[in-house]
Amino acid sequence: MKALMSVGALIGVLGLLMLIGMIFGVIPSNTVRLVEGYMPMQVLSELAVFVAGFTGLSYLANSMGVAFPRFWQGVLFWAFIQTYLKFRIYPPIPFSVRAMYGTVSFVAVFMWVSANEEDWKKFRQPILNVLDANTGFHKALRTMYLILLPLLIGGFSFLTMKPSVDEPIELRTVHPAPPASTKVHGKTYTLQTSQNPYRVNLEGKFDQAYSNKLIVEQGMGRLMAPNANPWDDKAEGYLKYVREGGEIFFQNCHFCHGDNLNGRGLHAFAFNPIPANFTDPGTIAQLQETFIFWRVAKGGIGLPNEGFPWASVMPPWEQHLTTDEIWKVILFEYWHTGYYPRTWD
């Protein structure tokens, strides 16, 4: 047990030193990278390793008779989580989410330190010591809190009330509910039931299972499936339409959406927000093809009221592309990103 805990402690110390080094620039911040595609699990795993490490440290300190006070364990662990979220995860997490995480981790620390009576007594003892002020040190501390706390609250109130010149926060609905049907080039499409006319098998029939087999691999590198190269001269049917969609994409869309479809095109950073990143699992992977059809055809100007503040400059492509071209470009987007359009069973 002791050996296991010692390993844990070692990991904990190393992890902490590395994090501190990365914060202060002593160690390059990309020493342990967050790897695209694995980042979500990587973050949770790193936190698990830190917890194991701190447990090991605490165990060793206890064994050596220099137990770290429970109060400071709780406070510092909470501070550690905030530091990790602020400095480890890049790009920076917006304040609203950090506030949510901060609150949850605060509650978690409370649950931990008060899970049983003995721990709870240990945790609150330093607080009671200050309140009781039986020693000179505690008395001084109590006096200091008496002065500092109103100042802190006052300062916080002042900063809250102070008029801000920052732009206000926005709660933008990224994917507003689409209409039941949309009219493009004189034809009405029911969004719930319409299908991409080019998602067909070799017999020319709509076949999503067939097209699903031919999309690129979604993992790292996004490799093409074997014998599924749309730019092969012999490519027919679905793959040929993908190629045609790709040509339309590179003639019209890639300037903003990027040649890797990740929303980082040539003009992308002239806009805020930058154009949609199709490789993100939260965009086209979540939507039906008909939703994309509606958004492409009607553009930012066609967003419903729910899309306030209509922060999209996408042109209404129905004014520039034919219906067939829109369907084909959508076909290409799904093929290239390796995502499947959403379907209802």
Binding site: P91, P92, V97, T173, G263, N277
Partner: peptide, 19 residues
């Protein structure tokens, strides 16, 4: 859909956070 200021949105580099 994250609540954020336009400045935070810009710093994040897009509507979706990669992690």
């Amino acid at each position: 859909t994250i609540v954020m200021t336009p400045a935070e949105l810009k710093a994040m580099g897009g509507q979706q956070h990669p992690v």
